[in-house]
């Protein structure tokens, strides 16, 4: 082989060999998948009739997974109110007079996501397009509409112009319905559409993704699981400058030591809910140092703060259901 290839070989970063992850979690996952298939009466065959050879690229399934997790997060945040604080009731808090099946209500959340340094100093986080070109800042309003039954959601994310970063602003709109995710970005034409299979989503640490994978449209299941497994705990109250009482809930996901393969940082999530009506006010996620981290001072990960400006539950009228459609009204 050529000298160049030999030189490359000499600089293989993994030439000492790597230690693969243990097989047990994979076997557990396979077992769970099989149990679900059996429970579903074998509707989905494990083996697909395809030709031999390497599998084709699976399409943007992973992107869909992230997007759906993102969209469901809003619903998760909305529902944590009821499950965590509903005085033992599992019914979500709904506005007076709304009535009807809570699972069919259209939940509308408007939030802003701010990126900060660990010490709270804000950063102008800029979203880049697929070529890395700046589109706009990420602290613009994000509207999400969702229903648990049927499982549908739509998200409209606005990126604000930034003179400093030569960004003119833009929007991304996504809508999920009936196993299909549609995405439209303002900076490129057309709507992309992809089929997503919630049952194929692997288990993740994120409650929303887990809820999706478990095949439930109701993110309450995820929240109940968080509470049942002790991943969320009540941490008392705090009062804002204007005398507003907020309830504090904290969830912690510790970092992991991967041995020779390094480590991954953990994350601490703090939920602030309005004590008067249990509506979400703010969610702060802060990365925490991985085990064995020996750095000085504060762990240098970026924190994110999501501030909720609107949280409302709308009855499932034809007009409100149009909010869930791609290109639908914006409120």
């Amino acid at each position: 082989m050529s000298d160049l290839i030999d030189r490359l070989r000499a600089h293989d970063p993994e030439r000492g060999g790597t230690e693969p992850p243990p097989i047990e979690p994979l076997l557990e996952r396979i077992e769970r998948e099989r149990e679900r298939e059996l429970a579903a009466g074998g509707r989905r065959a494990r083996h697909r009739a395809v030709g031999a050879g390497a599998p084709r690229r699976t399409g943007p399934a992973r992107a869909a997974r992230s997007a759906i997790a993102l969209g469901l997060t809003a619903a998760v945040v909305a529902v944590v109110v009821a499950v965590a604080l509903g005085g033992g009731s599992s019914e979500p808090a709904s506005p007076a007079g709304a009535g009807g099946d809570p699972a069919r209500m259209v939940v509308h959340v408007r939030s802003r996501e701010l990126t900060t340094q660990p010490d709270g100093r804000p950063i102008e986080a800029v979203f880049g397009d697929e070529h890395g070109r700046p589109v706009g800042t990420m602290d613009g309003p994000v509207d999400r509409w969702s229903t648990a039954t049927p499982r549908r959601w739509r998200e409209l994310r606005r990126y604000l112009p930034s003179r400093r970063n030569h960004a003119g602003g833009g929007t991304t709109e996504q809508a999920y319905a009936d196993g299909r995710l549609r995405t439209r970005d303002s900076w490129r034409g057309g709507t992309r559409s992809q089929v997503v299979h919630p049952e194929r989503h692997p288990p993740r640490r994120y409650a929303a993704t887990r809820a999706l994978r478990e095949g439930t449209a109701d993110p309450r299941a995820a929240i109940e699981q968080l509470l049942a497994t002790g991943q969320l705990r009540a941490m008392g109250e705090t009062t804002t400058g204007d005398g507003r009482r907020l309830l504090r809930f904290v969830g912690e996901q510790p970092g992991r030591d991967l041995g020779r393969r390094g480590s991954v940082s953990g994350v601490r999530t703090t939920w602030l809910l309005d004590a008067a009506d249990y509506r979400p006010v703010e969610v702060v996620t802060v990365p925490t140092a991985p085990p064995g981290w020996r750095g000085r001072g504060m762990f240098p990960g970026l924190a994110s703060r999501t501030v909720f400006e609107v949280y409302e539950t709308l009855p499932p009228t034809a007009a409100n259901l149009r909010l869930l459609r791609m290109g639908g009204p914006t409120g």
């Binding site: 943007p60 992973r62 992107a63 997974r65 992230s66 986080a125 979203f127 880049g128 697929e130 890395g132």
Partner: peptide
Amino acid sequence: RGDARRAAL
């Protein structure tokens, strides 16, 4: 592809 947005950021 899924992480593209975060990567861009």
